[in-house]
Amino acid sequence: MALTPYADASSMTLIISVQNDGSVAQMGKDLNDALTLVREGLSDVDLFHYTIDLSGTWRPGDCELAPWDEPFSSAWQKLIAIPAMREPLAAWLGSVVSLIKENQDKQFKSISEHDLTQFGEVPASYLAFADKGYVPIYTDLLGVWDLGHAVSQFGVVEQLIAAHGENADTNSLKAAVADWL
Rank of each mutant, 00 (worst) to 15 (best):
S95V: 02
L79K: 06
P71F: 08
D53F: 06
T170S: 06
Y126L: 14
Q104W: 09
V135E: 08
L160V: 03
V45I: 09
S23G: 11
W92F: 14
L181D: 04
M12G: 03
A34D: 06
D62W: 01
G94K: 02
K132N: 07
T4E: 12
T57A: 14
E64F: 00
E158C: 01
L116A: 11
K106I: 13
G133R: 08
I100E: 12
N171V: 11
G28I: 02
G155T: 11
D115F: 05
L173F: 09
P88I: 05
S73V: 07
Q159T: 07
A130P: 02
D146A: 12
Y134P: 06
E40Y: 01
K29R: 14
I82N: 14
L47F: 06
H114W: 11
L31F: 13
Q77A: 14
V96S: 07
E121M: 11
L99W: 10
V38P: 11
D30C: 13
M85K: 05
L147E: 06
S74N: 09
D140R: 14
A150E: 09
V38D: 07
Q77V: 08
P136I: 05
R59T: 12
A2C: 09
A25E: 14
T170M: 11
S43F: 01
G155L: 01
R39Y: 10
E121L: 11
H149F: 04
S17T: 15
G148R: 02
D69Q: 12
A168W: 00
G41K: 10
S98F: 01
D140Y: 09
E121Q: 14
D179Y: 05
I161A: 15
A162W: 01
T36A: 15
T51V: 15
G94C: 05
A163R: 15
F154W: 05
S95F: 01
M27S: 04
L65G: 02
L160G: 04
A176P: 13
A91N: 06
A162S: 13
P5T: 04
S125F: 03
K174Q: 15
Y6Q: 00
K101W: 03
L142G: 02
K132Y: 02
G120N: 10
F72S: 04
D62G: 00
L35R: 13
I111W: 09
